[in-house]
Amino acid sequence: MTGRRTVEVDGTAVAIEPGATILDACRAGGVDVPTLCYLETLTPANACRLCSVEVEGSRTLVPACSRIAEDGMVIRTATDRVRHARRMILEFLAVAVDLTTAPELLEAMAVYGADPSRYGTDDGSPRPDAVVDNDLYVRDLDKCVLCYRCVEACGDDAQHTYAITIADRGAAARVATEFDVALPDSACVFCGNCVAVCPTGALMVKTEFDMRVAGTWHEEAQTVTRTVCGYCGVGCNLDVHVQDGAIVKVTSPFDHDVTAGNLCIKGRFGWTHVRAGVDGA
């Protein structure tokens, strides 16, 4: 059981290590599989099903991100069934939520020919407004695809703060604090690690949110500079996003072995003093 395994991906044999997932196998074979809820640093949530593939002998499609590949598995990623599932999932999401700040999903919609307009007109139910209850980050539940990433990052997979949860059930399910209290009244420590993993911009740092509202957010005009956080001795890497000579956001690289994309409140948000006195502040 310790040796390498071989699976077939779209007709091509791919050698993989034991414990590798179908997604690993596809990527090793150079086959692109779209993902949404999956992130290398988090436990697969299995929720979006966008990475569904066909596995010979399986009655249903199989989520590539979490299923361990078995020796001899025959995997197909480009069948009508797979394409249908992905197109429908993308349409479902586009009908239910605002994907305007999720460029990867918009791109996937074009690839799979997703057409959300065929579900009829908007039912007129009120869309939730973005919740601005603190100075550091904003929650826009109208953009939330319930991928579980933020809940996992806040909980077992990174921060162990457990400030947020999935509340309610079915179509009413939503990310929430206990009794929907404002974030400053919850257990939130404002590390922003939930913001870092959000794939749709439903969680957004306040500076970016404000600049987008004002129409002054220009990602193409920004530079990103990697540096090391100076607040303590851990050595977290920071990616400092700068636009027009001013810091607009700080993130952390996911592939860094110290931080894995995570920071604390100081590293992620503690940079406004850099401009102190410059902007007339």
Binding site: C48, L50, F92, V95, D168, R169, G170
Partner: peptide, 8 residues
């Protein structure tokens, strides 16, 4: 409400 195909 966990997976998209069923929830939506």
């Amino acid at each position: 409400g966990q997976c998209v195909p069923c929830r939506e």
